[in-house]
């Protein structure tokens, strides 16, 4: 299982690009972090998710 924003998902073995393709995130508006390290968009296709990984997907929201 891979944790995505705190939620366990059965996506081990997929690349980040493959996983994101199954979601409705706006690719222009997100940044991702895998096990605490930022993953540049250029390597989404080459970064394969493994069992036990933890991924964060973030975007901007209103704030002060």
């Amino acid at each position: 299982m891979v944790k995505v924003n705190g939620e366990a998902k059965d996506i081990a073995g997929k690349s980040i690009a493959e996983y994101l393709a199954t979601t409705s995130y706006d690719m222009r508006r997100i940044a991702t972090e895998l096990n605490g390290e930022i993953v540049p968009k250029a390597v989404y296709a080459d970064t394969v998710l493994a069992d036990g990984d933890s991924m964060e997907i973030v975007s901007f929201v209103g704030g002060g």
Partner: peptide
């Protein structure tokens, strides 16, 4: 702005 976990359900982006 603030940074938070992205939400797929809400397509509006600031």
């Amino acid at each position: 702005l603030a940074v938070r976990r992205a939400n797929t359900k809400e397509h509006e982006n600031i």
